[in-house]
Simulated scan of single mutants.
Amino acid sequence: MNLRPIGPDDGRRPAVRPRDAAVPSPAAPPTHRAEQLGLGGDMLREDCWSALGPKVRARVEQTAGQTVAWFASVDGSDPDRRPRATVFGESALCVARPRLNAEHKPVYALSSYHLGPIRHLDVDHRPTASAASSRPSGPGSGGGPGAGGAGPSGLSAAARGVLGNLPEKAQTLLQSPFVDGSAVTYCDWYYEGYEHHLEVFVFVLAGAREVTVAAGSKIVPVGHTDATAHWSLRCYRAPVVRRVGA
């Protein structure tokens, strides 16, 4: 699957490999078992974004560049339940986390993955209602990850459960850069909406060398279940050229 560039062509061309060179086949990313996507929470992303404050929002936006996908949610690890934010932009993936400084005063710590050219591929998944029997990874179904194993290093069980809801093609696009042993150093996701319609869905994976993101929406048409939900996603991939912060 070839991803299309999102930004201007930087003039680079792929290297030509000699015909007699042995090219090892990369390991296939696993297809995970889906876990139920629960709904609830204190605030939606717009309210959480506003609660960050104008200075923090300005710093995040300046670092990330033109926004491609974003979310903000309450940080359960913060004693005051302040929000955290993740913004994927054309310049960087930027994360703002609530922290306490040396005087134990509330502040925000920013970290960022500065990116090279972004490529993308659309995933428009429209199974029929009868296709559930051919998709063993539906919510609550038996079995575990596919032949690729547990997935990239650094991917939690919770993350695998969310990934399992996505179409197999989207799971592959998100995980492919990490199947060579590259660890996931940042993983987060967000969705909001209703059981039959997730109006916003974003999933982010980042490592030392690449960042992948899936953003879009999910609809469960009448007569369908989660296992045959319809997904409209755009999957992004970009190389990491510099990392700033923890």
Rank of each mutant, 00 (worst) to 15 (best):
A157Q: 15
D78H: 10
A69M: 09
R135W: 01
G89Y: 08
A170E: 11
Q175A: 15
Q62F: 14
K55T: 15
P79Y: 11
R82C: 00
I118Y: 11
L100R: 15
F88G: 14
C94N: 09
H125R: 08
N101M: 12
P167M: 01
G143I: 02
G148D: 05
A96Q: 04
A72T: 06
S73T: 11
G146S: 07
G149S: 08
S176G: 06
T86I: 09
L121T: 10
A158S: 15
A159Q: 08
G164E: 00
A69K: 10
N165Q: 11
G89K: 04
P79Q: 01
P54E: 05
S153F: 14
R97P: 01
S133M: 06
V68A: 12
V95M: 01
D78A: 04
K105C: 09
A72W: 07
Y108M: 03
G142L: 02
F88C: 14
D75M: 02
G142H: 05
H120I: 00
R82A: 02
D78M: 04
G142Y: 08
G143F: 06
A69N: 08
D124V: 10
A132R: 01
S112G: 03
R82P: 09
F88R: 07
G154L: 07
G116I: 03
R119E: 15
V87F: 01
P136W: 06
G161E: 02
S111W: 03
V162T: 07
R57N: 03
T67I: 12
L174S: 13
E168P: 04
G116S: 13
Y113C: 04
H114D: 02
Q171A: 07
A69D: 10
A150R: 15
S130A: 06
V68N: 12
P136N: 05
R82I: 03
K105R: 14
G154A: 06
P106I: 03
R135A: 05
L93D: 13
V56R: 07
A147G: 07
P98N: 01
H114Y: 09
A96K: 00
N165W: 06
H104E: 13
